[in-house]
Amino acid sequence: MRIGVLALQGDFAEHLAALARLGVATREVRLPADLDGLDGLIIPGGESTTIGKLAVDFGLIEPLQAFGREKSIWGTCAGAIFLSKDARRQQPLLGLMDITVERNAFGRQVQSFEADLHIPALKEVDPSDAPLHVVFIRAPLIEQVSGDAEVLCALADGRIVAAKQGHLLATSFHPEISGDDRFHKYFLRLAEPA
């Protein structure tokens, strides 16, 4: 199995390091040809406007959409925005997931935070069901899921921070910078070729 990490801008190195810790072969994806032969793709945190613009300029939008129709993609933060159908402003999106996101929903950097989240789906990779410690950085919220998308995790007040739609995942937060690799393991199970 080989997993790609979109390396246009953002914390792709942190995702590559997490995948390496789990013994998975990886590849940085900057051009459409880099997608060949991958079993799954992670779109990292970063600035969604930067990632979207570079994806348009280097002809990645359609190849990424085609990839996502067949294979697993997980977007963290900016990646989740990029996967969404609607980000409530004009910017390039893949539109693969039936989710509406609100950018910088918690506010500016002073409002960024760490939290322990209970994510029931992680029981598939860790029976202990222990909370996942994650970081939210100028994070988006998933305002709404529709169609085939389902909620994977919500905060106590009901606000959605993780969603799943078939083999596609979107998280508002960054498991890749807190050193707990269970969410990566969960993604790898989705990405595993049948």
Binding site: D11, G46, Q109, S112, F113, I137, R138
Partner: peptide, 22 residues
């Protein structure tokens, strides 16, 4: 839910999101 703001990880985390950028 207990949250912590302004930790070093949160501060350094934004810089991690800027990587590979201008």
């Amino acid at each position: 839910m207990e949250t912590q703001v302004a930790t070093f990880e949160v501060k350094a985390g934004l810089a991690q999101m800027l990587k590979g950028g201008v």
